[in-house]
């Protein structure tokens, strides 16, 4: 508590969903002390980046709050896809769309999304 208490509670932990350290601490006070619970109750880590930044910050905060080493805080399930992509990518030519997904695909997919059948 002492160490964590020095942090500014207005610090944003989850940038995608705009969740502050104070939001997290309110949930911890109510007995929600796992990443799985805090993710679901606050949307921390549910945004487009899927927790790539906030999951580790949350892990550190929960370790402090519960007096455990960070390594003992369960990280929760990492779910696919690794990077968001447009739904329409999957309805075009299957081989091509899979290739662009495999290579990371970039933030965008060239607007071929609307290719409905």
């Amino acid at each position: 508590m002492s160490e964590g208490g020095e942090r500014d509670e207005n610090t944003i932990i989850c940038r995608c969903e705009d969740i502050s350290l104070a939001d997290i601490r309110r949930l911890v006070e109510r007995g929600y002390t796992t990443i799985d619970e805090i993710k679901r109750l606050s949307r921390t880590g549910m945004g487009p980046c899927q927790g790539k930044t906030c999951r580790l910050l949350l892990m550190q905060e929960l370790a402090r709050a519960t007096g455990r080493p960070p390594g003992e805080v369960a990280l929760g399930t990492f779910r696919p896809p690794t990077k968001p992509f447009k739904l329409g990518l999957l309805v075009g030519k299957e081989g091509e769309t899979r290739d662009s997904q495999d290579t990371g695909g970039g933030e965008d997919d060239g607007g071929q999304g609307g290719a409905a059948r």
């Binding site: 549910m46 899927q50 896809p81 739904l87 609307g114």
Partner: peptide
Amino acid sequence: LHRVAEKIAWLLPPLAGIRIVRQW
């Protein structure tokens, strides 16, 4: 993901342009 995309892009076409974030 393929099966959902095929049906949704046909039934609700503008949704084809929205990004999938997570599946479970």
